[in-house]
């Protein structure tokens, strides 16, 4: 549990060590993987962490039904395969799924709108856990509510599994613009601003003072090309989550239809996946250098980004980003 003291005088699960792990991931790419083989490809490509899950968001979207925490033996096998940190997702508000992942020893929990919410009112009380949490946000108020609950890292929600960057851009700009506004707001306005944001006054004051979130901010939801990754870094993201973008691009299709192996996992071409993953890592690192993004994009020869969805055509019932507030 939070802030416990061990026999050797070491304090584990403190705010500093939880936020600190996110700080170590900055400038990096975190990749969704559904098998130990994909996790090894992600690590070889230079990912700073992997998100272990049963299905990438694009497949969750396609399959429908209830999406839950992944099979824990799969998460365990992925933890046994790579040396980089392993993250896994829980349903919004499902604190028992979170307790399971903490007991299993995952390094980070994503309380994620990509899974079907378990609680339509309350998120997990994350401050109680020793393991750090990352949560999605569409704007500053949502980000600060999650930080107040104990999130150690924030990511844009974007629209997961859409292959469309527009929602992530909207969310990143909304967060950035609101921070800029607070940083020049007269002090006597902060209380009303906190009310309008639906966020605790103490956190709003902290933002006004420091001109930045108190935790690391990554981009997630819709990144599918090296240029997308660089765009989000230039809009202020401190790192990138890639969900469906890599392994959808490397999916083996027959007559345009995805193929699955005997265990139900989508078949991917490992060499295309590796190239694709490396290109996203390179573009994230050299986001300010257009020539490097050109080189990364050219290295994809033969691989096509996922087809993607025009999110304006999605009915609200199929939007993932509206889950949780």
């Amino acid at each position: 549990m939070n802030g416990s003291k061990n026999s050797n005088g070491a304090k584990t699960g403190t705010v500093k060590v939880k936020r600190g792990l996110a700080q170590m991931l900055k400038g990096g790419v975190i990749m969704d993987v559904v098998t130990p083989e994909q996790a090894a490809i992600a690590q070889e490509a230079g990912a700073v962490a992997v998100m272990a899950l049963e299905r990438i968001p694009a497949d969750i979207r396609a399959m429908g039904g209830v999406a839950r925490m992944s099979d824990l033996s799969l998460v365990q096998r992925i933890m046994d395969t790579v040396t980089i940190p392993v993250m896994a997702k829980v349903r919004i508000g499902h604190f028992v799924e979170a307790q399971c992942l903490e007991a299993l020893g995952v390094d980070f929990i994503d309380e994620s709108e990509v899974l079907t919410p378990a609680d339509d009112k309350y998120h997990v009380d994350k401050a109680k856990f020793s393991v750090p949490f990352v949560c999605g946000a569409r704007d500053l108020g949502e980000a600060l509510r999650r930080v107040a609950e104990g999130a150690a890292m924030i990511r844009s929600k974007g629209e997961a599994g859409s292959g469309n960057i527009v929602e992530a851009v909207r969310h990143m700009r909304a967060i950035r613009d609101a921070i800029a506004e607070l940083s020049v707001a007269p002090e006597e306005e902060l209380s009303a601003r906190a009310r309008d944001l639906g966020a605790p006054l103490e956190l709003v004051k902290e933002i006004a003072r420091n001109k930045r979130l108190p935790v690391v901010l990554f981009c997630a939801g819709g990144v599918s090309t090296p240029a997308d990754a660089a765009l989000m870094m230039l809009l202020g993201a401190e790192g990138i989550f890639v969900g469906s973008g890599i392994f959808k691009a490397a999916a083996i299709l027959e007559n345009g239809v995805a193929q699955y192996d005997e265990n139900g996992f989508p078949k991917v071409d490992p060499s295309i996946a590796l190239r694709y993953a490396k290109a996203i890592v390179d573009a994230t690192l050299h986001f300010e250098d257009a020539a490097a993004i050109v080189a990364a994009s050219k290295s994809l020869a033969g691989a096509r980004p996922m087809h993607g969805i025009d999110v304006r055509q999605l009915p609200e019932s199929q939007m993932l980003s509206v889950r949780g507030n």
Binding site: N6, N8, G9, A10, K11, T12, G13, T14, K16, V17, K18, G20, L21, M79, T83, P85, E102, G105, V106, D107, F108, S130, V131, P132
Partner: peptide, 13 residues
């Protein structure tokens, strides 16, 4: 590497 354990063993000393 990770000599003290995974993230839950991360600590202030």
């Amino acid at each position: 590497r990770n000599a003290f354990g995974r993230q839950i063993a991360s600590a202030e000393v």
